[in-house]
Design a protein around this nucleic acid. Structure first.
Lengths: 167, 167
DNA sequence: TTCCGATTGTTGCCATTGCAACCAATAGCA
DNA sequence: TGCTATTGGTTGCAATGGCAACAATCGGAA
């Protein structure tokens, strides 16, 4: 940084201080966290973010439909669709028609899918633990409550439907 | 939801409960927050996320170089490059060669850019305020501290260099 | 029964963007 | 002075993913 040190001169009237701006800080934190996680499921298991979410959801609930895959509204239905297709092609997920409503299909992990799930999940959990390890149990509980409050509020402020648009 | 209510059956052994998994919850919150913000700077001012960040950074610090634009490591240098090009083409940002080191260029908002900044910033701030309005001042302070702690830790866990990969 | 609107899921198209290769310029060192 | 490693920045390429249009199906009301 030869002479770039002058880059700190504040502008006439800085209206927003980025480093203190909550949405920005949340994005940075979420991005870093995703990176840490991606190291696990991407590099080591060849899973994309959407694929990882599908795997983990199906590991948690058997037989969800693609529609239910993103009820919290984090992924686009097209994203889910493509992720499921890819996972099916890899033999990790299996579809079964729902005879009661033939628009949708039941989804479930195959044994191979379950195996991957059981290999990835503990490592992902470990990352989460390592993240939280800098907080006391009390702080963790507080954080959880704060995130919940903010998420509820953010849902009110965000465009009603559209929610899936990060990465 | 004709018959989909059965989708709740938990799997044999759910190792990860997504709704309680910190990285996931952070991503959801950050995504919703970004959506709320994007409504302002995208729909109303035609700014992309990177463009918004450039504008806001230049509003805060005059004459930063493109390199300094993402020191917190949130944007790729190619992303910054393209955002700056676009903004220059729109006449919102001006480049000036740095004669001391001709690899880099000083960047600054043009009057038009400054005008946009002064129009967007207050609205963006308002979104942030509305988000935080569900927390007491005490809680806001706590949240800030927790985010800092987690961000520091996440930086240690994430791949050393790569950080810009959200959206 | 027969529409019409709503819902699930897929796909084509396009914008975004990460990656890596590359150019230009600098710094450090022999 | 040259030679090499490093850094700021740009661009081609390919993959990702959102949007919107579409097909298939269902539910409800006339």
């Amino acid at each position: 940084m030869a002479s770039g040190s002058a880059a700190r001169k504040p502008a006439p009237e800085p209206l927003v201080v980025l480093e203190e701006f909550l949405p920005y800080r949340l994005n940075v934190l979420a991005g870093l966290t995703s990176s840490a996680l991606a190291q696990i499921y991407a590099e080591r298991f060849g899973l994309s973010i959407p694929a990882w979410r599908v795997i983990v959801t199906l590991g948690q609930y058997e037989c969800r439909t693609a529609r239910d895959m993103a009820p919290d509204g984090v992924m686009h239905k097209s994203t889910v669709s493509r992720a499921v297709s890819a996972l099916e092609k890899r033999g990790l997920v299996k579809r079964r028609p729902n005879l009661d409503d033939r628009r949708e299909e039941w989804l479930a992990l195959t044994p191979e899918g379950r195996a991957i799930y059981e290999a990835v999940a503990p490592e992902a959990l470990a990352v989460g633990e390592r993240l939280l390890s800098v907080l006391t149990p009390q702080e963790q509980q507080t954080l959880s409550a704060l995130i919940d409050k903010l998420t509820r509020q953010a849902r009110l402020l965000a465009p009603q439907d559209a929610e899936g648009e990060e990465a």
